[in-house]
């Protein structure tokens, strides 16, 4: 796929092949085009070239900044919005089940603005789970949250992959966190490397030279 914005090509000939039931990390520096690529895959943006070949529905869990967290809404109402996005009404996951998966059942009647950042991310994930799509794209779900919450989110994502859902997760994490994923794709407007975490790590030396040392720990 290719995508241009204001005359600048921000996605250049990206070709991805995601295997069903896998958890894939999409990593890269700021401005690499990770969010743009996710928006292209979900259909929120139209590419200048290329297409998405997918037999199932694709859901997107947006970045924190896309949500108005001060809106007067309870956790349960927020998760219910995911239900109304769903095109396929078969195999319906209940709101309570979605909240249970992310460990937020006790908070169901609490107002969204009264939750911590990590709890809010879990609610956003529950809303995405409600859509029950074959592919779930997550735009930096682990940003600005504490390590235990990050671990919890990764556990939920792994569980979803085990159940057959295909997940693509954009992230800034370059360290050991990559080992939690089946596949890693390194993006900087084009795909610089892809493969298992081990294969990508082996290429890290070259990537450090290409992308700057701040990207890699």
């Amino acid at each position: 796929m290719c995508f241009s914005y204001e005359g600048r090509q921000t996605i250049q000939d990206v070709n991805l092949d995601l295997k069903a039931g896998t958890l894939t990390a999409l990593v890269g520096p700021n401005g690499a085009g990770k969010s743009t690529l996710l928006h292209l895959l979900q259909g929120r943006l139209s590419g200048t070239k290329g297409h998405v070949d997918c037999q199932c529905e694709i859901a997107l869990m947006p970045q924190r900044a896309a949500i108005d967290w001060s809106f007067p809404i309870t956790v349960k109402q927020m998760v219910k919005l995911g239900q109304s996005c769903r095109a396929n009404h078969a195999n319906i996951l209940s709101i309570d089940e979605a909240l249970e998966r992310v460990g937020m059942v006790e908070m169901a009647s609490r107002r969204l603005s009264r939750l911590s950042g990590g709890q809010q991310q879990r609610v956003l994930l529950a809303r995405a789970l409600m859509q029950q799509t074959g592919v779930l794209l997550l735009d930096e779900p682990c940003s600005a949250i504490d390590p235990p919450t990050r671990e919890h989110l990764l556990t939920v994502m792994r569980q979803q992959a085990k159940e057959g859902q295909t997940l693509l997760v954009s992230s800034h994490d370059w360290g050991r966190a990559l080992d939690s994923y089946d596949q890693v794709i390194v993006l900087d407007q084009r795909v610089l490397a892809s493969g298992t975490p081990q294969q990508v790590r082996e290429k890290l030396t070259d990537l450090t030279c290409t992308m700057g040392s701040t990207c890699c720990d």
Partner: peptide, 13 residues
């Protein structure tokens, strides 16, 4: 409600 809390999401939906 959807438009208020997540306008881009509402468009995508």
């Amino acid at each position: 409600v959807f438009i208020g809390i997540d306008p881009d999401g509402a468009i995508a939906a």
